[in-house]
Simulated scan of single mutants.
Amino acid sequence: MTVIKINAITVAADSGDELAHRFAARAGAVDGQAGFEGFELLKPVDDRTTWLVVTQWSDEESFQAWVSSPAFSHGHRSEAEREGKPAPAHVGVSSELWSYEVAGGSR
């Protein structure tokens, strides 16, 4: 059964574009992971400042294997850090990980 992981990241009102830029810089980094099925970065279209990072996995074990992998650590480093420079300030004010299973729907 597909497992959905949603990282709800709250940013300062003027930091959303930077969050999107940072995700674009590492686009595809998780694509080759076993059990990975998809990714979406959802931008709020109202006054909210919480962005949603939605990933789909074939099972919980695949997600946990990715989180424990060197690829996870590498993928969560900034462009600057990967180039040996100091890390920029965090964009997120807070984040929360939500977990779901698909219980119905259509495609």
Rank of each mutant, 00 (worst) to 15 (best):
I6T: 12
K85Y: 00
G16K: 00
F23W: 08
Y100R: 03
I6F: 06
G105D: 10
S62P: 03
G28Y: 06
T55H: 03
L42H: 10
L97E: 10
G105L: 05
A25V: 01
A103Q: 04
E101L: 01
S68M: 05
W51C: 10
E79Q: 12
M1A: 10
L41G: 07
I9H: 08
G105M: 09
A103L: 10
A29V: 06
M1L: 09
R77T: 07
S95I: 03
A27V: 11
G104A: 13
R77E: 11
V91H: 05
I4K: 15
G28F: 01
A25T: 07
R82A: 11
H90A: 15
H21S: 11
G28R: 02
F63E: 01
H21A: 14
S69K: 01
S73T: 15
A34W: 03
T10K: 15
A80P: 07
R22E: 05
P86I: 06
T10V: 10
R22L: 04
G38F: 05
S62V: 01
F72C: 09
E81C: 09
Q33R: 08
V11D: 07
E81Q: 13
A8T: 03
F72H: 11
A20H: 00
V102I: 15
A87F: 01
G28V: 06
D14Q: 13
A24L: 03
A13Q: 11
G28K: 04
G28I: 03
S106T: 13
P86E: 07
A89S: 13
Y100E: 04
L97Q: 09
L52W: 12
L42C: 12
D59K: 01
A12C: 09
T10H: 11
A25L: 04
H21V: 00
H21P: 00
A71P: 01
G92V: 06
M1E: 09
S95M: 11
G35I: 00
V93T: 15
K43F: 07
W66Q: 04
A27I: 05
R22W: 05
V3T: 09
E101W: 00
V53S: 10
F63T: 00
S73R: 11
S58P: 01
V45Y: 10
V102R: 14
E37L: 15
T10L: 08
V67N: 02
R48K: 14
F36T: 03
A71G: 00
V3N: 02
E40T: 11
E96A: 09
R22V: 02
A13I: 02
V93D: 11
S94H: 09
